[in-house]
Design a protein around this nucleic acid. Structure first.
Length: 278
DNA sequence: AACTGTCCCTGCAAGC
DNA sequence: TGCTTGCAGGGACAGT
């Protein structure tokens, strides 16, 4: 499941291999992937433009073009962005193909089709991609000090886990990293945000930064089912460092006393150790 | 404001 | 072996 570290890994690949390239031709094979606008709009918006940068905010990939427009790619659950030699055999569920001026192709592959591609005018972001305009602080790309966390968490009575998952609050954290962050911070996922004192808020802030940085360093997490891979098709390795995610029923690796619990909150699996997370 | 549930979709694993 | 069922999840949305 691509979250901030996976999207950042893809962004770095795009920065190296896509920026500066001219898009000569575009194919859209599935309307649902471009549902925010249309095949025609995406093809017209991309054809004969040059990608001038590779940015990211939260889980959103943002590629400004020399036309003044920006391409937004969201991988959601199962999206992949892959670079391939021209004419290579495409995987099943390749929905968008960009033909580049260096002979390569960029593929957007997405079995579950939650992901999307849109070309929009960044001056009209609030109208065209409201969720992007409403995003909270990005803990890696933007200054993220204790004050930012205090502003984000404020005196909210909400539990920590749903708050971490809320993209309006902190951008880029999904289910895997929320569980890992809370475990590192030794905080229970159901603990109300308003119960944190300044010291615990600082610990949580540091855990957010540390877990995300370590995961980026490892190239993200590649799990069995959704098969996240980077631009060149390589797997990440942070799954080997998961302490609680996917470890329900196992002995806690941190305290070696508790058993990792798996519960469901808001329809999402939540993994945590009742002994070391309080 | 905060919560719960539903939907979108496919691949995979478990169970019969 | 071959079917059916359940589950995974980000985010939009509706209802309470």
């Amino acid at each position: 499941m691509p979250e901030l570290p996976e999207v950042e890994t893809v962004r770095r690949g795009l920065e190296r291999h896509l920026v500066g390239r001219r898009i000569e031709r575009v194919e859209v094979g599935r309307e649902r992937t471009v549902r925010r606008t249309s095949s025609e709009a995406v093809i017209a918006g991309l054809t004969d433009t040059v990608v001038v940068a590779a940015d990211r905010r939260g889980k959103y990939l943002l590629l400004p073009l020399d036309s003044g427009d920006t391409v937004m790619i969201h991988l959601r659950m199962s999206g992949q962005v892959l670079l391939a030699p021209g004419g290579a055999v495409r995987p099943l569920h390749t929905h968008v193909v960009l033909h580049l001026d260096d002979g390569h192709e960029m593929w957007f592959v997405d079995p579950r089709t939650f992901g999307e591609v849109v070309v929009f005018d960044p001056d009209r972001v609030a109208a065209e991609v409201p969720a992007l305009a409403a995003l909270g602080v990005d803990p890696i790309a933007e200054p993220f000090d204790t004050r930012a966390l205090r502003r984000a968490f404020g005196t909210s009575s909400r539990a920590l886990k749903p708050l971490l998952l809320d993209q309006h609050v902190v951008a880029g954290i999904g289910n895997i990293y929320a569980d890992e962050i809370l475990h590192r911070a030794r905080l229970r996922p159901d603990r109300p945000a308003s119960s944190l004192d300044g010291r615990r808020r600082r610990i949580l802030r540091q855990s957010i930064v540390d877990v995300l940085a370590a995961a980026i360093e490892a190239g993200g997490s590649t799990l069995g089912d959704a098969q996240y891979v980077d631009l060149m098709g390589a797997s990440g390795s942070y799954q080997d460092e998961h302490r609680v995610y996917g470890r329900g029923g196992e002995r806690c690796l941190t305290c070696r006393r508790g058993w990792v619990r798996r519960s469901v909150t808001g329809g999402r699996g939540t993994h945590w150790c009742p002994v070391c997370q309080r």
